[in-house]
Design a protein around this nucleic acid. Sequence first.
RNA 1: GGCGGGGUAGCUCAGUUGGUUAGAGCGCAGGACUCAUAAGCCUGAGGUCAGUGGUUCGAUCCCACUUCCCGCUACCA
Length: 513
Amino acid sequence: MDKTFYITTPIYYPSARPHMGHAYSSIIADFFARFKNIDGHKVHFLTGTDEHGLKVQRAAEKNGQDTQKFCDQISKTFQDLSKTLNLSNTDFIRTTEERHKKSVQHLWNELEKNDDIYLSNYSGWYSVSDEAFYNEDEIDEIDGKKVAKSSRSSVEWIEEESYFFRLSKWEKPLLEYYKSNPDFIAPESRKNEVISFVKSGLKDLSISRKTFSWGIPVPNNEKHVIYVWLDALTNYLSALEYPDKDHELFKKFWPASIHLIGKDIIRFHAVYWPAFLLAAKIDLPKKIYGHGWILSGEEKMSKSKGNILDPLKIVEKYGLDPLRYYLIKEVSFGNDGNISQERLEDCINSDLANNYGNLCQRVVAFAIKNCKGKVPNEIKFQDEDFIILNKFKDNLENIRSKIDQQNINFYIDYIVNSLFEANKYFNDQEPWKKKDNLIRLNTIVYTTLEIVRKISFLLYPIIPESSLKALKIFNISENEINLSSIENNEYLLKDNNINKIDILFNKIEKNND
RNA sequence: GGCGGGGUAGCUCAGUUGGUUAGAGCGCAGGACUCAUAAGCCUGAGGUCAGUGGUUCGAUCCCACUUCCCGCUACCA
């Protein structure tokens, strides 16, 4: 049976324009998807938009637009973002699609059938201006008027008929599940938060609303729409043609390998979602990973410096691959990351241009001048060649296992170290002094070409476009990239032509101001 | 308030189940080379590992206190 891998991003809520947080989730997910793809897995990579809810309905009204058309428009900006980020997603789901509606309603029916849903009243202190409910302890009384402590806006007691999900019933099963599946929630800090939250007790969850209509109707009670989280989370199933559990997609890809999300929505994914699934007797996803936020430090948004948090502007100015590389390299995965334009430029110059780009150029230029522009034929490896070549083979299993632990930083550090070693190797071997020993010269060139090839394979999940550009040296195309071939020290066919390539990364002129 | 995480070189971060001179990258300074995008290679400067006290033969790592930062503490997504 083929190895499979199903990864999802959050579905994005179109109340705001795409920002760096969206880009980050997507890029990281794409990294994993591409890695698994070149490592022989059948990959399903899902992203999409979450289009229901009061805010969307209001935003559309405000624009005097038909709600669906409004959604079409905003969803398009996220579909465009996926293209801009060069995502390899195999599907893009929208919660306004029919396949999703069918799936959510079916899940609802399952929950109802299993007695996990009941009708009752939802009540609480509601602030119209904040659009939020408050608990008793979040309320103050000033001059006989109840107000929210945080915003000081006045609140009123509201009771509304609502369907509830028996979340409380799943408190113990969830805790047991976390215990027997210690890798279910990552990173560790998030797991601890979730567990302590569940341990503090779960109340039943309101899962329908009557106050607005932009949503999926509750089966058999059209006055209610299904509350947004039950709606939104189900997208992960809808994209696999749930409720058709015999469908090829569902059989192949469920349970999901990993739901990649931001830490802000960990609870919905690590508590509500597994509870829904347990109640519906559906297998739980293997992992929920809540990554950190992208922060822009002290840097104020200014016109001269540009806004680092706008991914589209960054891509426009520096290109996509530098952004992808930078986010993956410099953010300690799982933690919040501070990004700055200055560090991005440093990364481009030192890692991408000087280290990787220049290595490609120097070996190609050398081979064209000294090896007739062909992959050398007569070679004889020595110890120092084997040492550097075999490192890839020796580390392959470790790389795979680190990726399965989402240790992205190990992966990229490994690549950067390999680049240092490669440049050092070429330096130390001094092929330019070996013109009277062609076999040695050829061997050094062949070895270095092999290293460039292996590193370019490893870089493909991070900077796919640039990796492919580099692989044009050897006329290697995208579908030929496969991870296990980094074990092979003589992958490159001898006497094949070597192609001169354009500069991969232009250096950024830094001006001190 | 309660629970949890953290304060390590100019910057971004590793690390230590407590043990000789605390690490990487970037940045900075010097050197040798020249195949290459004036790139690469070598060498070096820079830290009382937040503060105070304690346990210990010995603490950056353990404990207590102090201080600063951050997260969670349910229905905004």
